[in-house]
Design a protein around this nucleic acid. Structure first.
Lengths: 394, 394
DNA sequence: CGGACTTTGTTTGACGACTGACCAAAGGAG
DNA sequence: CTCCTTTGGTCAGTCGTCAAACAAAGTCCG
């Protein structure tokens, strides 16, 4: 029931039909691999002859490859899977501490990795990214595009980084310069959006099947990535997902980027947790969030208490999101997911306490299924998802 | 960049291409009416011959009709417009005070209207709706489907009304019984979602062009309808849009349905405004919101103050929504829109005060462009939008 | 007033994509 | 070894669009 956007709508030609079916077949190979032509034909209700033609096209384009299958009583099928050979995408995850790079194949399997400490200077960081990326591209031939994930405000369509709070970089031209230096197309997005994209395309099956969910990425700040109908929602000028700046109360332990003590971010980010820890333990001034999590997991009471309190406030904000958006799932990502066993109870309790307004079925709340690299996988997903995305018609 | 849902994806056949182009042409007729075949051909880049074939099909189906045009220097065009003759949809708006019914033509112009006071008994109300609807359907032949808008929680796909707070009706089977009684298909949705749909399809051009917006419907309660990418978002099991139950502070003037004094609804609904008015004016115990608005527009200070305060809290909640969703516009609907000149200043001020966290471009905030019947237009839109909606392919 | 020009709408053959029926290939079961 | 099952490919038929030519119905200007 979508309203057609006449300004952007493109009419269907005779090859549109092939484009649509090509993407459907490709997605069957991706999701049900290894699968035979006959099985695809059976499930899609396309004729076997048609599937064969489409498969030939996908093989020619180097997207899929054949392997031998075992007979089930008749002629043995030739099974299809995504082409495994060689890297196809390069991902750059610009973090507040480290910048990580990786190449991966079509199926999203990592092939090569690299990383360096992010430099406080914007230009120097770009130079280092270009250098490191260049090395990985020449080493692994076949990279077709680059995806970049950054912890800040981005206009994805224009490839424009507006602001990165941690380093106070404004109008950072990383996308333009990467493109110039490598000659490859560059896609860029906010880290929470990228992480949401990664869960959508490469998360564990129980998340991949979910088409409406919210990614809550806890880092120094607090970002949210919204997925509606299997699609990351960017809002007007790509700035959606700043639920981190939602007002949820007063007297937070730290201030948000704008000096506000009422934002969700000021209550539930890593910085908030570290501030609570510093107050509780009273000794470590220069405590990092990593060490805090290690300490808590090691049984230290102050660390545990700081994390649990942070988890509770995460729950308060999540309950607001659930009420408003009724997603099927909420995914919590970032390093805090390592301590999920410690915080989940209090977090879920807070969500339920604030949800009592309506006796509704609540969303599943789960830690990221992508381990410790949701942002890096997100950067790679920016490239890979475009290969598999649905054809946009009207 | 949408992920294909293999469980629901349907493959493209040779007639899919026609379906897609048919909807595009139909939407050109709807939005640029009156328009000639040649103009459609020019804008869509379809051949004139193809447009002609599609137009023939649409004419045969009684969706469009021809009128004569004036020459611009060559052969005069035959202009096309939506068929104006006769009603095509019946809308039922179940309100907490009145239930309104109307029929309209394809272009959304009202043809016939009726209304009655909503009865406190669920069954009796259904009976009365069926009686009134039956009369309007037999009077105006041609009605193809019925749309119903209700002030409560709905599962639109299953046609199930879960709960209507005002009357405490649970599992109301209005859709099923209307369908049985009339033999027509019935579509049902929450009033805020319906109103959002109405703005999307029948709002003034400045809203119709917006593809991401939020409808805030102020009534006894407070509902929100979310439109993403030109599509009403329902969330998991159709329950999205309950931002009214978002926690925004403490000590609201009234309680929400669940006895909570922290919800946005408890601060900014009609009930909240009436409670403020009763407190300020101290005399009228049985004040209604309608009279409150009349009094305020008439210059009464207590009424004005009650509305302005309510507007301020509307702004607080709207600022949270803007931060999280970055919509292009926020539309405020309900009777309070009548007093827009009184409340807009304070409302916008509150939004700005709470938005300072990020110096971002803010959404436009405007009153409903559908006058006093956004819900009724919403009910009609439930039917009409399905005629014009984009073809869902993959 | 009449011919040239302009614009609109229709007709017709060619092309691309899918369907469906038939055929060839390759293995299992008896 | 023969029959059956399953997979994959071939080819005429149909549907929808494109492109170009054609017919229709005006305006413009000498």
């Amino acid at each position: 029931m979508r309203r057609i956007n006449l300004k952007k709508a493109s009419v269907a030609r005779s090859d549109t039909i092939r484009h649509i079916n090509r993407q459907i077949v490709l997605n069957y190979v991706r999701e049900r691999s290894p699968i035979s032509r006959a099985a695809i034909s059976h499930e899609t209700e396309l004729q076997r002859s048609t599937v064969s033609l489409i498969v030939d096209e996908l093989k020619d384009q180097g997207l899929i490859e054949e392997i031998e299958g075992e007979s089930t009583g008749g002629r043995p099928p030739t099974l299809l899977r995504l082409r495994a050979a060689g890297p196809i995408a390069l991902g750059v995850d610009v973090g507040t501490k480290q910048t990580m790079l990786a190449t991966c194949d079509l199926a999203g399997r990592l092939i090569d990795r690299g990383s360096f400490k992010t430099l406080p200077d914007a230009d120097a960081t770009v130079e280092k990214i270009i250098e490191c990326a260049g090395r990985m591209i020449t080493k692994g031939r076949g990279v077709e595009a680059i995806g970049v994930s950054v912890p800040g405000l981005v206009e994805p369509e224009r490839g424009n980084v507006i602001f990165i709070p941690h380093y106070r970089w404004r109008d950072w031209d990383v996308a333009k310069r990467l493109k110039q230096a490598t000659g490859l197309p560059v896609r860029i997005d906010n880290d929470a959006n990228a992480a949401a994209l990664a869960e959508l395309w490469f998360g564990r099956p129980e998340i991949r099947e979910v088409r409406d969910f919210v990614m809550v990425l806890v880092e120094e700040g607090l970002g949210t990535g919204l997925v509606f109908d299997g699609q990351v929602y960017h809002g007007d000028s790509g700035a959606a997902g700043e639920f981190g700046h939602m007002t949820i109360g007063e007297g937070a332990p730290v201030t948000c980027a704008a000096g506000n003590r009422e934002c969700w971010e000021a209550f539930a980010s890593e910085r908030a947790a570290v501030a609570r820890y510093a107050k509780l333990s009273r000794r470590e001034e220069g405590a990092t969030f990593s060490r805090l999590v290690d300490a808590a997991l090691g049984g230290e009471e102050a660390g545990r208490a700081a994390l649990v309190e942070t988890g509770r406030y995460l729950g308060v904000g999540i309950s607001n999101i659930i009420k408003g958006l009724s997603p099927e799932a909420v995914i919590v990502g970032g390093e805090i997911a390592r301590a999920w066993s410690l915080i989940s109870h209090e977090l879920v309790k807070a969500v339920e306490a604030y949800s009592l307004c309506r006796g509704m079925k609540s969303a599943r709340i789960i830690p990221s299924t992508l381990g410790e690299t949701p942002r890096l996988m997100g950067a790679l997903s920016l490239v890979l998802s475009s290969k598999f995305a649905a054809v946009t018609t009207a």
